[in-house]
Simulated scan of single mutants.
Amino acid sequence: MDQYTIQTSKQKKIFVMAGLFILATSITLLGFALSIFSLINNISFTVLSSQIPGFVFGLAITFLGARYFLAVKKLKVEVFKEETHFSWSNFKKSNT
């Protein structure tokens, strides 16, 4: 009773992965747009009483979006493997 087989259709997996890719791409593009917008309009944000250019925040968001995109790409490979199966043991804490 440690392992259960849950049937998920390939179509559902494709739909979810497409949503994750759209989200990752949106984050990346919005970060890039913030960078360009902040650069053109000379926008800065106050953080801990310091002025930080909006361009820097845009670059950080762009980087995080690109990193998330790569993580989703890696997840896609794992999800679509044939030997992938559901197991409750994947959710147990390790004793380290």
Rank of each mutant, 00 (worst) to 15 (best):
A71T: 15
I43P: 12
L29Q: 01
K12E: 08
S94H: 07
L29Y: 13
G54H: 03
E78C: 04
G58I: 00
I61Y: 01
V16T: 01
T84R: 06
F69E: 04
G54F: 09
I22S: 12
I14T: 11
K81S: 07
F45K: 08
R67E: 04
T46G: 07
F15D: 08
Q51C: 03
I22T: 01
Y4T: 12
I14L: 13
E82R: 10
F37L: 06
I36C: 10
N90W: 13
Q3A: 13
Q51I: 07
Y68G: 02
K76R: 13
R67P: 02
A18Y: 07
L64Q: 13
F91E: 14
Q11H: 14
F45D: 10
E83R: 07
L64I: 15
F15K: 05
F32V: 13
S87R: 09
K74N: 10
L48F: 10
H85Y: 12
I27N: 00
G19M: 01
S94N: 04
I61L: 10
F86I: 01
N42V: 01
N42M: 06
V79S: 06
E82Q: 10
F37D: 01
F69W: 06
E83G: 00
S89R: 11
V47S: 06
G65S: 02
V72H: 05
A33P: 07
S35Q: 11
R67H: 09
G54I: 05
G65C: 13
F37E: 04
S89M: 04
A24K: 03
N90E: 12
I40L: 12
